[in-house]
Design a binder for these strands. Structure first.
Lengths: 204, 204
DNA sequence: CCGTTTCGATACACAAAAGTTTCGAAACAG
DNA sequence: CTGTTTCGAAACTTTTGTGTATCGAAACGG
């Protein structure tokens, strides 16, 4: 023991680090990433300026840009949809609503862009995004599809990987059409997409 | 008339520009874009080095980076699928085969990445990509879907925008799963995807 | 052979950004 | 009050890329 014991954690003595500055840095980083949708354009100087913080304060906490990015993207909360479990269709719509809303959020969308485009340049970062964000979502949908097959609500011979791609891909691509003008999605878009995929293209 | 008439085109006199150098520059540009999947990281110096060409030779032809990019991407041939017109399913499979193969080609994929991510930074370029590459494809598929509705091969109440998104989005997302290890797509992937979307998820 | 133009290479000025260092002020412990 | 650490700001070095200019060599027409 050096000098004091302040509820177990020994304060290092000296001016404590500002939590407000840390939050401002993370926020500024996420804002700038969402605006530029690319990691190469992101500069520490811009982050410092946006956060109202000296570059020193950033480099004291993170030794390089990628470390900062990892922490910034980790701060992005990723709420998974809650499934009622009453019917497959209801749960799929719940997933679709969450994913559609998420895809229209600039901060969430930039995560997907990074995961898709910066795989070779920032493998560590992309791997982290994958296990923290993509894998859980994929797991939820996969379990849902397998449950549907088990209950008979889905075709017994369903190709799950293709079904997964059809759900996520369709939503991602559908949302793309409404980006430029920032128009709102049509009412009931989630139901429409899900029903479209459930029932197929051909007449019954 | 100044001096000569060489089949109508007056040669400016002096060493002619090397067509080989021009091709090397375009090729190097496309290579580097496909590798980095981002426009910000692309440097004229890297292009010159890869092409084995002096920077002068580039700047003599294009006054800035964006002009070069426009020409480079225009050099990307984009063969549309030829439709037999015998049945909707057959034509959809033909489209899917072309689009799947295209999506697995690095140079073609980078065009899509640019169109999706660099909209604010290079509006001119993205607009050109849109009208040269995206719009024709969308038109082919839209016409195909509308024909299917007219012939009764597709549901009369089909939501065409969603159907379009389901086709393209599913293919794009499905291909994504086979990127990292460069595994080949499963045999008959195009048929599987098309049949999956045609018949839907639920049992009949 | 001569004038013109392009060739690739190199050097240059200029700008942007990374990362380091220094500075005076401020916050905290004792 | 004193010592320690963080604060934001600014100066600094290094790297990287843009765009221009200069060079001798090479390719063409006449």
């Amino acid at each position: 023991m050096t000098t004091t014991d302040e509820t177990q954690a020994t304060r290092p003595a000296g001016r404590p680090r500002s939590a407000r500055a840390e939050k401002a840095i993370i926020d500024a980083t996420l804002d700038l990433i969402s605006e530029s949708s690319g990691l190469g354009e992101l500069s520490i100087e811009a982050i410092a300026a946006r956060a109202g913080v000296g570059k020193t304060t950033i480099y004291r906490r993170w030794s390089n840009k990628e470390d900062l990015l990892v922490d910034a993207l980790a701060a992005l909360k990723a709420p998974l949809p809650t499934l009622a479990g009453r019917s497959l269709r209801e749960d799929l719509v719940a997933c679709a609503e969450v994913f559609l809303r998420e895809t229209r959020n600039a901060r969430s969308r930039c995560v997907m862009n990074i995961a898709m485009n910066e795989a070779e340049r920032h493998p560590r970062l992309v791997q982290r995004i994958h296990q923290a964000t993509i894998a859980p979502r994929r797991a939820v949908l996969t379990a849902l599809l397998e449950r549907g097959v088990a209950t008979g609500e889905l075709r017994a011979d369903l190709n799950v990987p293709i079904a997964l791609a059809s759900l996520i891909g369709t939503m991602v691509w559908y949302v793309r059409g409404f980006e430029p003008g920032h128009e709102d999605l049509p009412e009931g878009a989630a139901e429409q997409v899900v029903d479209h995929l459930l029932v197929g293209l051909v007449p019954r």
